[in-house]
Every structure is written in C-alpha cells, then in structure tokens.
Design a binder for these strands. Sequence first.
DNA 1: CCGCCGCCGTAACGTACGGTACGGTACGGT
DNA 2: ACCGTACCGTACCGTACGTTACGGCGGCGG
Lengths: 212, 212
Amino acid sequence: MQLAVDVGENALTERQKDVLDAALALLVEAGDALTMTSVARRASCSKESLYKWFGDRDGLLTATVQWQASKVRAVPVNPEAFDLASLTAGLQRFASDWLHVLSGTISVALNRVAVGHAGSDKHDLGVIVLENGPFAMARRLKPLLQLGRNTGLLHFDETDEAFRTFFGLVVRDVQIRLLLGDRLELTDASIERDSLRATQQFLALYGAQNGH
Amino acid sequence: MQLAVDVGENALTERQKDVLDAALALLVEAGDALTMTSVARRASCSKESLYKWFGDRDGLLTATVQWQASKVRAVPVNPEAFDLASLTAGLQRFASDWLHVLSGTISVALNRVAVGHAGSDKHDLGVIVLENGPFAMARRLKPLLQLGRNTGLLHFDETDEAFRTFFGLVVRDVQIRLLLGDRLELTDASIERDSLRATQQFLALYGAQNGH
DNA sequence: CCGCCGCCGTAACGTACGGTACGGTACGGT
DNA sequence: ACCGTACCGTACCGTACGTTACGGCGGCGG
C-alpha cells in the first residue's frame, strides 16, 4: 500500500514551480478544459518549454498534482502527556483541518480532474490524489488512534475500520456534494461545529467509557 | 429544493431508450471520452437521429443520466406495525441498497462524468446526479427517521443532521475511493456486514435507549 | 567580440470530434 | 402506383487543441 509519491529529487526549478502554480490556478478556473496554450500564456512561457519539462499534457497534469501534494505536508502529533483531552483535541483539530482542505477550491478542482481521468486509461492522477487524500489522511490519523487504544482511551479491533468510521463522520456527504457542484458554504464556525460533533460521535462509538 | 427531474412526459420511444442504453454502456466503458459517432455505431443509428432527438452532445448526456435515474425508483417503506426491529431492518436494508448502487459500474461512471462536468460551465449533469443521488437518498430516508422519532425510537433535533450522519456511517470513504479508481471489491457479504455495522452505530448514536 | 544555450513567442501541422448535409431505403397512408 | 416521413450510413466541414518547428533574443563562457 506504500506507493511512491515523491519522485525522490523533484528537481523543480523555481521557474517550473511558477509554471505549475499557474497550471493550478487554471485548473481551478477551467477544470479539465485547461489547454497547453493557456498554461503557456498564463505562465509567460513557451509551449516548447512545457513539452521539454513535462513531456506531454498528462505529464504536466501529473506534475501539477504532485506539486500541490508536496505543498500540504503533514504536521505530526506529538504524543507527550497523552490523555482524553489531548486525544479529543487531536481528533477535532484533525477533522477541522481535513474539512478545510476538502472544501478548498484547489482540492475540489484537483479531485474533479483526477476523478475524470480515472474513467479513462490514465489512472495516474486518481492514484496520486488517492494517495495524498484518503490514504494520507489514514496514515496521519492511525498513529493517534493507536495511541488512544494503547492508553486505554479507545476500544476497537481494526484500526482501519475505526479510521474509516471517523472519516465518514467527518466528511459525510460534503465531498461528493462539492464535487457535483452543490453550493455548500462551509464557514469556519460550521466547520468547527462539525469537527466537534464528529469527534464526540466517534468517542461515543469507540470511547472507553461507553459500552462495547 | 424540489427540482424537476422527470420532464413530465419523457416521450421516449423504445428506439430512443435503446439508444440511451447504448450510451450508458459506452459511458461505463469509455467515460467522458464517449463520442457521438461511437454512440451512433453502437446503437446502429445515424448521427442525424441523435442530433434530432437530443439536440447536441450535452443533451444526449443529460437524457442518458435522466434515463438511468428513471430506472432506479424508490421502494417506499410501509409504516405498519413499526417497532425497533422494523426500524433496524429498514435502516440496514437501506444501507445495503445504497452501497450496492454506489459500487455499481453505472453509478461510478455517471458520477465520474457528472463530477467532470461540474467543473466546467455545464452544471446540469452535476445537479441531476446530485438530485438523484444524495438528495434522493435523503428524501427516501427521512420519513423513516421521522417515524422513528415520532415513535420514540430515535432522538435527534434536526432530521437533516441525522440523515447526514447515517450517510457518513454508510458510505464512509467508499465512494470517493471508487471514483478515484481504487480497486475496492465490495462483496455481498461485506456490504451486508457494513450495513449492519452502520445501522448499529447509528442506533448507538441516536437510539432512544442510549444516552443523550 | 563570438558562438552556444536556454527560453520566449508564434506559426504551422495533424488529428479527432462535434455538428451538418445528402443519398438511399423501408414503410404507411392515399 | 405515388408521396411523405423517418431513419440509416456516410461523407463532409469547421474548429479546437495537442504537438512540433522555427525565428529571435538575452546571457555566459571563451
């Protein structure tokens, strides 16, 4: 399940990063209708350079998605003085971060193009987004869950099942509705509220003080 | 929130239904790469007829999505002799049905093209899928939830919040992973197991016998 | 100063596909 | 028998876009 995301040495010059940022912006604006010409114009570079640097259109899209993925790096949770309060805070902070990312225009745009490409031959984008989306969330959250289990604060058999339940409680129908174009404004306040609710529901299901 | 899905009189001839079924099959196979020529060839009809019947490519796609939507009609739950057992059975059956639909190749294909189109100007497909997906699920489930509340079996303030929690517990990360191309085989047995788990978790959160 | 290199801008090419036009055929009505 | 209608198959047109090629220009080593 451990797929290579970073290509070791990205070897991206600043100029190329600027180009990829321009591609990101266009991806947000136009979605998959992005053209090589539009990227070249927006980034003030030649199409020749685009093809030299990224090979072809798919290479550019792949590099763009990876570039965005490399920008959102995980902040690890430090397991010092671990108790119910810090577990709750960690879960809620995690849910809040995730909802903020999910509802961002960049996340929506990238997920849209990746979903679209997963339907054709090119599964690369889907794999990359999968790896940096749900799978990355799982890798980041599972240590916290296992720490909770080791300290007796949580009860579950399969870490993966616990994670997926938490995922469901946090994300619910938000992502699919956003991807399908539903206007669904998530204010900071509502995200805070939903994160707290999801965390409390998760603790009600897997917390040590409750039955099961 | 009540959007027209059926166009009153569909006025679809059998021939046209066959064409739309061919379009559905091609949508599953090729996704958004479907071409008018391929539909005409598969359905053994002329492109002229396609344009006469459906206007343009978007019209064909819209008609295809609506045609599929018209095929999966809801089976209402009869509220006779309602108790905890029938509530549990209803929820579980609902979850099972939904997971079966979600994981079907047709649902995945239609959601993919709708998500893709939601990124461009044409939001129609997204709205239609939204209307026949999450929103239809909500309309079908909410009467059952309210019946549960009226009979004292469930406790919640907002029906919509309860529904969305159930949605999250049932769907979790399954749909987004399928849309992104993750190989995720859902056997009948695993779906039955997941439906039961989701139902029990939901009852643990909103059931009358539990706290809150 | 000179030549090489990387890059910009743009023009050009090939192709795929949406959309249209048209000839040919079957059929039902008169 | 004749006509209108509906439809199939196919050829065709226009365009958009991916991809390639080329001219020009600034910088840098010699």
